[in-house]
Write a protein that binds this DNA or RNA. Structure first.
Lengths: 115, 115
DNA sequence: ATTATATACATAAGATTCTGAGGTATTTGT
DNA sequence: ACAAATACCTCAGAATCTTATGTATATAAT
């Protein structure tokens, strides 16, 4: 399971990016997708995910839509217009941060490295 | 200056790695090195740095040595044996996390991408 | 038939780590 | 003379995370 709390703020970016690719997802689905994409190495806990979703919705970046599936309630999230703009911004921010991290941590390959 | 707010958890790794490369550094020097390596984009604040250094020392990963330079006091930090072991561990943890982040955020280049 | 696991939402206490402001003191540049 | 740089430090508050708890239904296992 390794360490899950390494880069603060990347959860929001993960959520937004997954929703850019998928149009519409519900919370539990997001946790499963991340688990599947990382071979179980990153597990988004519900205690982190739901407050993050609620915050993004409160900021107007996500909109919700409740669906009844069998007898279960699902809350689908999708990007608003503002949310779509924010994905790009958050992605390049994170990208930039990772590049800077490489510059600090791998002093050998400073000029042209690949992400 | 972009966003400086993503560093949570990676600051320890940054400190340990810089000390692996440099044998001995003092706090202010670390802030300047990071600023210089990232063209001013990442600024380690003192409110984050000093508590982090004290914590790493308390955990036995760093040792200190006070030096008088002119009339100024400098507190030099260096890796202990435990600290040297921890660098490797923390680095591969961070490396692994960044790889997983790529897997989530760049769904196109899943099989063989470069870090 | 009962129990455990999976699905699906949510909150809340406590821990950790950061920001931003403040404090002390010396040295160097203007 | 004053500002900025050098050098250390602490602390209130914010943000985000973990862990535990709670509700409820569906499915798999014993």
């Amino acid at each position: 399971m390794t360490n899950n709390n390494l880069i603060k703020g990347s959860l929001q970016t993960i959520i937004l990016k997954l929703l850019e690719e998928n149009e519409k997802m519900y919370g539990y689905e997001i946790t499963q997708r991340v688990k599947e994409l990382t071979a179980g190495e990153i597990k988004i806990t519900e205690g982190a995910l739901y407050p993050a979703l609620h915050k993004l919705e409160a900021e107007g970046l996500l909109s919700t839509e409740i669906q009844q599936v069998d007898n279960r309630v699902r809350k689908y999230y999708s990007l608003t217009k503002d949310g779509q703009k924010e994905v790009t911004s958050k992605m390049s921010e994170l990208q930039g941060f990772v590049e800077n991290l490489q510059r600090i941590l791998t002093p050998d390959l400073k000029p042209g490295f690949n992400i």
